[in-house]
Nucleic acid binder design. Sequence first.
DNA 1: TTCTGCTTGCAAATGATTTGCATTTAGTAT
DNA 2: ATACTAAATGCAAATCATTTGCAAGCAGAA
Lengths: 136, 136
Amino acid sequence: MRNILKEKGFKITPARLAILQAFTKNKLPMSAEDVCKKIKSKKINEVTVYRTLSSLEKGGILKRVDLRKDSVYFELADQHHHHIVCTNCNMIEDFKNLEIEKAIEKVWKNIITKSSKFKSIREHSLELFGLCRMCM
Amino acid sequence: MRNILKEKGFKITPARLAILQAFTKNKLPMSAEDVCKKIKSKKINEVTVYRTLSSLEKGGILKRVDLRKDSVYFELADQHHHHIVCTNCNMIEDFKNLEIEKAIEKVWKNIITKSSKFKSIREHSLELFGLCRMCM
DNA sequence: TTCTGCTTGCAAATGATTTGCATTTAGTAT
DNA sequence: ATACTAAATGCAAATCATTTGCAAGCAGAA
């Protein structure tokens, strides 16, 4: 974890370690508020959490996830995957699927050769929305 | 347009007509702010725009789109499609692809039979992020 | 045309996130 | 180990998007 920070040129601070630790423990996407709760024992200021999330995102350590919530969610950028979100209770499950990745890649290669507007695709997001067993 | 509103049990009001008109003209996703700009000649209050977007979404006429922006975007719900977003200038292009839809459907059918947590998937979003020709 | 409830506008509240500034601290050079 | 500097933090206040309360207005049914 320290190495990850060093590689990206970040100073190693208690706040950053605590926040990264929270993400490695939790795996699922978290908002600034979620992170604050997870690390509340560390007495790290809310503003620091926002700033840290933002800089870790810029550094490519975290990435932003869009889950149709009213606040911004982040997760570790280390491994690409997608989510299923319960639109009622907000439970989140991760999933990976090679076929989908292939299909998406095929599409965007197709798009950048045909589109008059776009020339390069760098990433994509795919989220499924539904109801979990509990909420059905 | 009036019929759409009537079908869903909405009263026909200048604000709703103006907002729906803006969406049918523009095609691309818009935030509340975007909508306000488009219909500024109609002197419709910002709060009304927010309320209208929200109720049209509940009525299934609009749907929310997740574009990693800091405000919420909506578009007409009438036809399912996906987007390519320029992460620099925010230009948006729509696309449809039958293969992708099939692959996604396959995946979520697979998921709901296997997942211990999820039982039904109702919708999905797929967005591509990259750079447009101008921004490259 | 009258009535009733849904809609709207305005002002103010709220919630999430950002900024200014003074203080502290990590990493580096001494 | 010590001193130094830029980056990181905490606190208060500001900002931005969105929501709410309430009184007035308007659409659609009778």
